[in-house]
Design a protein around this nucleic acid. Structure first.
Lengths: 220, 220, 220, 220
DNA sequence: CATGAATGAGAGTTCATTCAT
DNA sequence: TATGAATGAACTCTCATTCAT
């Protein structure tokens, strides 16, 4: 260890247990949890503090304002998309990409609720809109590139511009995030797979019926 | 100039003319307007009253509670779907249906913002969820039936169950409603048409490439 | 014109079914019911109207204000005391008087709750205080006279002024009215009788223990 | 004179000195004061705050809700009874007990008004009723024990169960608390003493008239 | 560094009252 | 005679934010 540092640390008053970034992340996690459970309108600093097990003062200490907290939260949420793109190898298969997206976004049961709240609210908060726009555009660009590559190697129909196909696919996903709580039987894991399969089939290269696989979308 | 007159006029109590349903509808319109501009979290009875040009007392006179107001508002919003289904002739073309949906929902610039707020909030308000679920399911059922008919007459690919196709199409639309404010250039009227065309092309019957029309999605 | 009165009456708009005093009494009954169930703080014209099955307008039509309604209500409540005094014969027995009071005031299960609310509130409403003071004083005067008469004929101890005894008895009764809802087992009909017996025994003429009846207050 | 200073001082946020319990007690005192002056129906958090010289926000900071404030207030009020019982020596004389009760409860001119409001309101608020029931029962039990002891040593008539006598005495006291504002001449200090004397006389052991003291209840 | 007391605005809601009809 | 639309003030309570400690 760092002997000198340790001694100094023992004496300093202002930083008792955890370190700043960790505590901040903790608060963000609490905020995500509240946002998922209570919705945007029901998310107050009080409740975030309560869930984090601290006082409201602590929250406003780590985040200048409520808006700042939510912006940080939004950035955090989009990191999952970036991480996914980073992890995917170059010549990724489209089905694989969609499957990965499904796995990562539904892996955390709070992701869809939180993301849909952020997207819905962004319309009314320019700063939040800026974050969404920037991060979402980056993702859609990568998405489009992947589809274009797939088109070039004949794995995706090429009668429709890649950008439009990407738009279509991301919109479908947004719709799912928004609507998942209604008729939850529409979003069981099995059916989610079927929905993804459907999407893949729709953008598959079209040829004579004989060459295509049989009917899809058989789930229980 | 007429100070006295103004003062006398200022305090208007008692029963003014006008019928109940009309005034109620007026308040609902004001609420829609506020919801579109301020979002769910920013919609207060005070603001609704302000936009309607009356006091908050008047609002709570017509609607027992804020929740009741929003439920009525939601029902009203879904009426546009019902009206559309009612107006469409039996053997409606799918492209026609989508076009009609686009025309009707974008005809009122407040429709998409309001609907997306309602859908996003429904997750946290059981009563609102009930309304959305009920009305939305009705619409999707009709939608599925139309697609199935189209499949039977060979106008829509039949390798995917009609229900899944309907799901896909409505999800796309939900995604559009949610995301339209970001990069608004993605949702210009022209591009909206292109998106609809894309959707139609995706679910068109697939045959030998030769039989299909040329590349679609050419917009400026 | 006047001869045709009957025919005209058939046509007149303003006085459809019942007559004024009856409707007024009906409203008063509704107010009593609300006051008993909701307490003074919870008694609003809205609720009174609701229980009476009419609009708030009707209430304010029959009573100039909420205060006027409650004053009328108070007067009505005290009528039960006056009626009792009027009904009692001249040389009434004290036990009989107390029994009659118990029977009449507990006959209507709403009487004690309403009366205690009025008495408690009177402290803060001069007009109501005036009513209570006037009517209550009248009752206590009569009460004192009866006790004095009993003293003269040797039925009540005469070592204490009649007025103080009356004060004591009415205070006990007030206390009962106020406290009856707590530990309701203290105010079962049987025990209420025992309490009255106790009060009678306390003011009975005192003599050598031998002349007094045996221990009282045996209830289950 | 000091315009600038005043403006600066006017908006005082942040943490001022002073300890939590003291401030809480201060607010409770203010609430008692308001309750005594305005009655239960007229007691609002606004008024309490106003009397305490702070904002309503401060009140709701110390008390989770209005109900919580009033419950705390009720508990506080009953503490005077407990303190009295605790202070009294074992073999206390009954006259002494009653005198002590009179002295302590009338020592604070707000006690009777506040207590009667709480008792009257408890009928409609279960939580408040629970407090009253619990604390009041404790007091009455102690009271009964004292009377029983007095009966054993021959200082109180034993032809009536101690419990009934205690009931009678506490009911009288409740009646006084409720009715004290009407004809206030009935509750002058002197007359209050006379009323207590009367109560004592009523429960005194009964013997041959000769042995009893002369007529009581002589006040001006 | 971190707290928590306090603010002041605004939320939804209830209310007594008014008055054109 | 009776209604019911509407007011405006007051209610309890929640909130984001500030700041002395």
């Amino acid at each position: 260890m760092d002997g000198v540092d340790t001694e100094v640390t023992a004496n300093r008053r202002g930083r008792p247990p955890g370190d700043h970034p960790a505590r901040r992340a903790e608060l963000l996690r609490a905020a995500v949890s509240v946002l998922a459970r209570e919705g945007y309108a029901g998310t107050s600093l009080r409740r975030v503090a309560q869930r984090a097990g601290c006082t409201t003062g602590a929250v406003t200490y780590y985040f200048a304002s409520k808006k700042a907290l939510l912006l940080a939260l939004a950035e955090d949420c989009f990191d999952i998309y970036d991480a996914m793109l980073r992890d995917l190898s170059e010549g990724v298969d489209l089905r694989e990409l969609l499957g990965e997206w499904l796995a990562r976004t539904t892996g955390d049961p709070e992701f869809w609720p939180v993301m849909s709240q952020l997207l819905a609210q962004a319309r009314f908060e320019p700063d939040l809109a800026e974050v969404v726009e920037r991060r979402y555009a980056r993702f859609r660009t990568a998405y489009t590139a992947i589809i274009a590559a797939e088109q070039r190697r004949g794995a995706v129909r090429d009668d429709i511009p890649a950008e439009l196909l990407a738009d279509q696919l991301t919109s479908v996903a947004d719709g799912w995030m928004l609507m998942s709580p209604f008729e939850p039987e529409r979003f069981t894991p099995d059916r989610a797979e079927a929905l993804v399969d459907t999407a893949v089939a729709l953008i598959a290269p079209t040829g004579p019926p004989a060459t295509r696989p049989g009917p899809i979308g058989q789930w229980d």
